[in-house]
Simulated scan of single mutants.
Amino acid sequence: ITERMLRLKAIVLGVHLVSTGPVSLTLFFGRNTFSVSTEELLAYPFTDVTLSCHFSFVKDTENLEFSWIREDIKELVYQFRNNTEQLEGQNSLYEGRVSVDRAEISEGSLSLLLRNVCFMDEAIYTCSAVTPNGRGESKIKLIVEDSEMPQVHFDRLDDEDVAMCISKGWYFTPNVTWLDRAERDLSNHSTVEVLEEQMNGSYRVFSVLKYRVKLNEKYVCRITETDV
Rank of each mutant, 00 (worst) to 15 (best):
I1N: 04
I1A: 12
T2M: 03
R4A: 14
M5R: 09
K9C: 15
V12F: 12
L13S: 09
H16E: 14
H16N: 13
V18W: 01
T20N: 07
T20L: 01
G21D: 09
S24Q: 12
S24I: 08
F29A: 13
G30Q: 08
F34K: 07
F34C: 13
S35R: 03
S37K: 03
E39Q: 11
L41M: 10
A43E: 07
Y44V: 00
Y44E: 02
Y44D: 00
Y44M: 09
P45Y: 00
P45V: 02
P45C: 08
F46S: 06
T47Y: 02
T47S: 12
T50I: 15
C53N: 04
H54A: 12
K59Y: 11
T61M: 10
E62P: 01
E65A: 10
F66Q: 00
W68M: 00
W68V: 00
I73S: 13
Y78K: 02
F80C: 04
T84G: 04
E85Y: 05
L87V: 07
E88Q: 13
S92F: 11
Y94Q: 05
D101A: 11
R102W: 08
R102K: 14
A103W: 09
E104Y: 03
E104M: 14
S106A: 13
S106T: 11
G108R: 02
S111F: 06
L114R: 02
L114I: 08
L114F: 05
R115P: 00
V117Y: 01
C118R: 12
F119A: 02
M120S: 13
D121E: 03
E122D: 05
S128D: 02
A129Q: 03
V130D: 12
N133M: 02
E137V: 13
I140D: 00
K141C: 08
I143Y: 09
E145N: 14
D146W: 08
D146V: 08
D146Q: 08
S147H: 08
E148P: 06
Q151D: 15
Q151W: 10
V152C: 06
F154Y: 14
D155P: 02
R156V: 14
E160V: 15
E160M: 15
D161E: 14
D161Q: 14
V162Y: 04
V162C: 06
M164F: 07
M164E: 14
M164D: 01
S167W: 05
S167V: 02
G169C: 09
G169M: 05
W170A: 02
W170S: 04
T173H: 11
T173P: 03
N175W: 00
N175L: 14
W178E: 06
L179N: 05
L179C: 05
D180P: 04
D180I: 06
D180V: 07
R181H: 09
R181K: 09
A182G: 01
E183I: 07
D185E: 12
L186N: 07
N188V: 13
N188M: 12
H189G: 12
S190N: 05
V192T: 15
V194K: 11
V194L: 06
N200P: 03
Y203N: 10
F206I: 05
F206S: 07
S207H: 04
V208L: 06
V208N: 03
Y211C: 07
L215R: 15
L215F: 12
K218D: 10
V220C: 02
V220P: 01
T224M: 08
E225A: 02
T226K: 13
V228C: 10
